[in-house]
Design a protein around this nucleic acid. Structure first.
Lengths: 350, 350
DNA sequence: TTTTGCACTCTCGCCATGAGAGTGCTAAAT
DNA sequence: ATTTAGCACTCTCATGGCGAGAGTGCAAAA
């Protein structure tokens, strides 16, 4: 009789063994052989029996062996099965929770808070932390300030409800006096405060239309300036990575080629961003296993993510990047709780 | 007669050979033997003669051989002598100059400009670019704005003459109304605009003294707020590094241990900052050779720096980090001209 | 169904070997 | 006096053989 090919109908014993094997491999990165497994499992089986079981698990695709005489390691599919069905996450200690809480005490502006979060994640997991910054599109404008610089340049300061602050410099057609700027600012706050940027832009277009008919509007200059101030999208980072160097300590990534590719992809942002966005609308913690997800820069890597939200609205995604062979049972709750606490920290920030 | 031990009295011929050797080694990183040197030098000498000369150069301490049968490589002292006395920098092409000019066209705020500069440096040299951010202490305050956030939190926006913008959030003893904030802002700009932060702080202390005598001053609240706003030093980066991953391509640094140490020192900032500060008050381009300067994280590395200044005042330092075996003749003029252009870009930015 | 026994395979570290590169020294040549 | 040729010597590095160790798969026994 051929081995059972349905991973969900595996006999209890095989599951136990598989779990122990994965844990063992996560622990020390060496392929696990039948002897070791026989010794370390509480099942009282001989290596031979275990070999048979492992052969079955290999047939199903959960295991593979690097070469004939080297024990087994989990495949991507194996990891997937492990984290989805077998893993029990561990409780965090009070100390750890307090640590996270303290780091996320909201006292400064959003940008700084998110950086601290990323640092904290990397520090506590000894892996690379990653925090995607919220698109401020969704946030309501609170305040607009103009500061006249030399010539025709005007500094625009936008403050959003989530405490995010944006500075932009625009070039105006003519020089505006401080008075004009003050007036414009007042008008804009009055008219647009509480609306998000997208809405503001739309309404501005309409306003501009109306202006063409009624040239005498005293708010001509305000609209003119605003047009520029709100349109120009400032270059801003999409996410912050911290603790990249932690990854250099990890045996299976200790290859300059690999590391370079990985670090480059942090800089280019594209791949990582794509991955993060995928998980933006999932609920709770998600786990990406590199080879499975088809990101070749993430070979031998896993990414554990969770969206964070405030007032029911998803703001962004945070997580941890590390080797596929990571301590999921610790990392998952850390990412989970960090996301939640960041959410409420941002909440209390309004 | 023993070999001449004074490097400045070396015969012309030895100098020529030494220069060619260093250039050769910089080119392809392999120790250079007498055969190669005999072939590549235009001097018509046999390998044996060259061996004698090389032995002399080794005695003086300019060369060393990794092992008996491996040709010679320059020592730190050798590099020093090379860059100080032998090197002729090459002219930059018009394209390169235009490239630098374009990248440094000042249009946004200082922070962004400096980041672009760092990126440009790394990109153009294929090494790591580094730009130290100016201490804003020296810059005159131009504008102060307050934005009331929830509860007792106030967002402080400081704009300096060099277009640097700083955001800080402070906690006040009580809630201030927008009107009060506006008034405070007006007063502070009126009183302190044009002065640098250090001065402002000093004067504020005096003001506070006076206030104690004359409690009726209408500007009590302004001073109160300002006290906090100007005292709290925001956490800000000291320098930005770009193109770290370029260093991973370089053969002699292709060792994860080394790279980790190096990258870590970028993150911890301490060592690098110390080094940069050293060159802050030197004129023009300076070259640090890792082992010579005693920074062990910089083994096999050199740092080429130049201070940049605007209106005769040194604002900071920028430069490039790469292997000791780098193309100085190209890197030096690049760093030089970048520093000058950044200076004038910041100048035109006022 | 499990276990024992055994032949087989693959990796890895070790050592010897030899080619290649470059040196230093001495003696000859210029 | 300087330069060159010759030569023995040293060191690295790539190669291949070898044996130990680890682990497997299979067949036969329990």
């Amino acid at each position: 009789m051929p081995a059972n090919t349905d991973i969900y109908n595996l006999p209890e014993r095989s599951l136990r063994l598989f779990k122990i094997l994965v844990e063992h491999f996560i622990q020390d990165g060496q392929p696990v052989g039948s002897r070791t497994l026989a010794r370390d499992s509480d099942l009282d089986l001989s290596p031979a029996t275990i070999r048979n079981i492992m052969a079955d698990l290999e047939d199903i695709g959960l295991l593979q062996s690097p070469h004939t005489s080297a024990g087994r390691v989990p495949t991507a599919k194996g990891y997937r099965f492990f984290v989805d069905s077998l893993l029990r996450v561990s409780e965090l200690t009070h100390n750890e929770i307090r640590r996270i809480e303290e780091e996320l005490s909201a006292s400064e502006d959003t940008q700084a808070l998110l950086m601290r979060t990323s640092n904290m994640l990397s520090d506590i997991t000894k892996l690379a932390g990653i925090v995607m910054l919220p698109k401020q599109e969704q946030h309501a404008l609170r305040q607009v300030e103009f500061v006249s610089l030399s010539d025709n340049r005007v500094l625009v300061i936008l403050v959003f409800n989530n405490n995010e602050i944006q500075n932009r410099i625009i070039h105006t057609a003519r020089r505006f006096s401080p008075g004009e700027l003050q007036q414009a600012s007042n008008y804009l706050v009055e008219t647009y405060a509480g609306k998000d940027l997208m809405t503001v832009r739309k309404e501005l277009v309409r306003e501009l239309e109306r202006m063409k008919q009624n040239v005498t509007s005293i708010m001509t200059s305000a609209i003119e300036i605003a047009q520029q101030a709100f349109t120009k999208e400032p270059i801003r980072d999409d996410f912050v990575v911290a603790g990249q160097t932690n990854l250099m300590d990890i045996a299976e990534l200790c290859d300059v080629e690999r590391l370079k590719k990985l670090f480059d992809s942090f800089n280019q942002k594209r791949d990582i961003l794509h991955l993060l966005e995928q998980s933006a609308h999932a609920k709770g913690v998600q786990i990406f296993i590199g080879e499975e997800a088809g990101y070749d820069v993430l070979d031998n890597c896993s990414v554990v993510t969770s969206p964070y939200e405030s007032e029911g609205q998803i703001l962004g995604v945070l997580g941890v990047i590390g080797p596929t062979r990571m301590h999921y049972e610790r990392v998952i709750p850390i990412v989970d709780i960090t996301a939640k606490m960041l959410g409420s920290a941002l909440n209390s920030n309004n």
